[in-house]
Computed example of a mutant assay.
Amino acid sequence: MTTTLISFLFAITILTLTPGFDTALVLRSAAAQGWKRASVTALGVTLGCLLWGVAVGLGLGALLLASEIAYNLLKWLGAAYLLYLGLKLLFNPRSQPEDVKSSDSAQQRYLTCFSRGLLGNLLNPKVGVFYVTFLPQFIPAGASVALWCTLMALAHMLLGLVWNAVLIGGSHYFARHLRQPSILKIMDRLTGCVFIGFAAKLAFSRR
């Protein structure tokens, strides 16, 4: 069991460190909105991993493998959401960093950041397919599938939070320079192009 756990932690660490949409989203939030909202975004992203793990443990993830319709539906919803985020940044970039002036608007913007990270993860069926094919390899014989999938997804979530904290902390110094109006607008448009690229990659991907 020790060897299995070490193998799992090694594999999930490599997965976490691999750049993707989640990384781009967190870094963009850190540069444009500050470390607090970037942390909330990271929490939404990693919570999505936990929810996928619970779903796989309950057998719901297998639906993505068994049903072409379910997979394609979630895939196109995810691609459409990424495309929406990308186009919004591309054609409506920010010219000023976001400043919160009231507690109500602060809560609303934090919720927006959280939901953006959560939906970006949950609407990606490849995460579910990955979990349903990856996690069972590390479940001991006779153990509870639901419990182990949840625990492994929780480990992935905690590791993701630590890595995102490193990314946010590392970008803190550069964030002050990147939040200049002219640079912020360019960065938003570049990030929008990246999101559109991820949308296209997801839309044309196969299981």
Rank of each mutant, 00 (worst) to 15 (best):
P136L: 05
A32R: 12
A199M: 09
R109K: 14
T18I: 12
K185V: 04
L5A: 13
C193W: 14
L83M: 13
L85C: 07
I168L: 02
L63P: 01
R189T: 01
F174G: 07
F114W: 11
S115P: 09
N72A: 10
L190N: 06
F21T: 12
G142T: 01
N72F: 00
V45G: 01
A106L: 13
G120H: 04
H156R: 00
A199H: 04
Q107E: 05
A24M: 13
V162K: 01
A155W: 00
R206Q: 15
L64M: 10
Y131D: 01
N72P: 00
L190R: 06
T18F: 05
L154H: 06
R179H: 09
T4A: 15
T41W: 02
I69Y: 05
L161T: 00
I196E: 00
S39E: 05
A155M: 10
L27D: 03
G117D: 02
C193V: 15
F134P: 01
R176N: 13
L135E: 04
N121E: 06
K185E: 08
V166H: 01
W35N: 11
I139R: 09
C49V: 14
T3V: 15
R179S: 10
G120L: 08
G120I: 02
P19M: 03
G169Y: 03
Y71I: 01
G169S: 03
L167C: 05
C49G: 11
I196M: 12
L9H: 03
I139M: 01
W163L: 06
F174W: 14
V100T: 14
N121H: 12
A165F: 11
A66K: 14
R28G: 03
V56K: 04
A66M: 09
I69M: 11
C193I: 15
L89P: 04
K185D: 00
S39D: 07
V40S: 07
P140F: 04
D188E: 00
A199S: 13
G48M: 06
L111N: 08
P97T: 06
V54L: 10
C49F: 15
W163M: 07
A106Q: 12
K185Q: 13
L85N: 02
D99E: 14
L147N: 08
S39L: 13
G34E: 00
L122V: 09
R206N: 13
L178P: 00
V40C: 04
F21S: 09
N72H: 11
F114V: 04
H177R: 15
T150C: 09
V54Q: 06
L77I: 13
L161A: 04
R206E: 13
K36Y: 05
S171N: 01
P125L: 09
L15G: 06
D22Q: 09
M157T: 10
G128V: 04
R109N: 12
V129S: 02
Y81E: 08
I183Y: 11
W163A: 07
A175T: 10
K75L: 05
A106F: 12
K126P: 03
S171L: 15
G61Y: 07
V54C: 01
W52I: 14
M187W: 14
K126S: 06
Q180D: 11
A165N: 02
G61M: 01
A203G: 05
A62G: 14
A55R: 09
A200R: 07
Y173C: 04
A32N: 05
S95W: 10
T150F: 03
